[in-house]
């Protein structure tokens, strides 16, 4: 066992973990943050994407002990309690989800994409989300949702 301290969604947590514990299992099993999902065992599907020190990572491919001292943001912490991030709004407005299982990872990956490229073309959105699989939507409405968020985020605050 190793003891780690990780700041998750702004709150510090100190826990004992097995060295082999995956970040996704730490979040889901020990912190009860079950919004981060597991859809595969080969780092393909992206359902487990979270932000580690501000960058998107597949939390099934990161060990919990690697996150000692780090900041992790999950879907539960993307927006302040009771509010929605522009991407969450976009997915709702544009019907960017059906079963919702891939959605938390998809939104977290899209948030990172918009951070790097605030005004992506449809093609850039499609390529930017290549690490996330969705089986329900055919991606058309996910593209619309991300575009909605990009447009909304481009409006200066207060407008």
């Amino acid at each position: 066992m190793a003891t780690i301290t990780v700041t998750v969604n702004g709150k510090p947590h100190t826990n004992d973990v097995e060295p082999r514990t995956l970040l996704v299992h730490y979040l889901r099993e020990q912190l009860n943050l079950t919004g981060t999902h597991i859809g595969c065992d080969t780092s393909q599907c992206g359902a487990c994407v979270v932000h580690l020190n501000g960058q998107s990572v597949k939390s099934c491919t990161v060990l919990a002990i690697q996150c000692h001292g780090a900041e992790v943001t999950t879907i539960e912490g993307l927006a302040p309690q009771g509010q929605m991030h522009a991407l969450q709004e976009g997915f709702w407005e544009k019907h960017g989800l059906q079963c919702g299982f891939c959605t938390p990872g998809m939104i977290m990956a899209a948030a990172d994409l918009l951070e790097r490229n605030p005004n992506p073309t449809d093609d850039e959105i499609r390529h930017g989300l290549e690490g996330n699989l969705c089986r329900c939507t055919g991606y058309e409405n996910i593209v619309r949702a991300v575009r909605y968020a990009a447009e909304k985020m481009a409006v200066p605050a207060g407008d």
Binding site: T34, I75, W92, G100, F101, T103
Partner: peptide, 21 residues
């Protein structure tokens, strides 16, 4: 109209099988 199912699913509050403890 947009779906009533969505708010919980886009905020990580869905309850899927593996979330059950």
């Amino acid at each position: 109209i947009k779906r009533r199912e969505d708010p919980k699913l886009i905020t990580g509050q869905g309850n899927y099988l593996d979330d059950i403890k």
